[in-house]
Design a protein around this nucleic acid. Structure first.
Lengths: 124, 124
DNA sequence: CAGTATCCCCGCCGATACTG
DNA sequence: CAGTATCGGCGGGGATACTG
């Protein structure tokens, strides 16, 4: 399983594959958004409800960024405004296994972890 | 590969396995630090060089948090100050596959991705 | 070498109000 | 419904100086 070359040429933050993936998945809400979208297309409000207590502005922001990364598509059905769907691009779908790995670690970890997380959680 | 229950009871940010994993791995420098440590124990300065352009204060901070999470151990060899080693705990080591997944996506992605990332990268 | 202490800044995020 | 506009703060992170 550990057949990864951690000693790749660019280890520097900005350029290494790790950072680049985390630019997409590591942000505060991004993983949640992608998770919701892995279950199928969603409308803005529904998405917002599913993700958690996220401000509309922030969700819109994140979605725009994820669009720029070609992870998410905004689909205004037939040009009707006020009916918009977001879904994952094919590129976005490839993040499934990545989120799965993160998820699984969290689950396995929960079983073994008997300690308090350092108070400052990602949960607001 | 997709045998993960995305519809688990707690989807809310703070409690879901995804967030908890990202609390550890998703921070700005954390993944880099863990990556360095996956290659073996390191001293503070060496670690700092390997991780990238990180301020000493921040590295010390991050290391303390990772200690609290029981991911990293600080090992003052024989009580000699000014000779300290950091290494992963057994729990920390289990993050290997997780980082590997992130890394691999970044690599595979680099090949297919023909677009500019949205300027605001994680790289300072 | 392995950090601490201090200062400052900016970007992220949240809340509220408003719009097509 | 699907956002935008605006403001405000708070804390994470960087630079620099200092210490055992």
């Amino acid at each position: 399983m550990e057949t990864v070359d951690w000693r790749s040429p660019d280890l520097v933050a900005g350029d290494c594959p790790l950072s680049r993936t985390l630019d997409i998945v590591g942000g505060k809400w991004n993983a949640m958004i992608i998770r919701e979208l892995l279950a199928g297309p969603r409308r803005f409000t529904s998405l917002r409800a599913g993700v958690g207590p996220i401000a509309a502005k922030v969700l819109a922001e994140r979605l725009r960024v994820l669009e720029d990364y070609d992870i998410v598509v905004r689909d205004a059905r037939g040009g009707v405004p006020a009916h918009v769907e977001y879904r994952l691009t094919s590129r976005g779908l490839t993040l499934g296994p990545v989120l799965a790995a993160l998820w699984r670690w969290g689950v396995a970890d929960e079983a073994s972890w008997r300690g308090q997380p350092p108070a400052s959680g990602r949960a607001g």
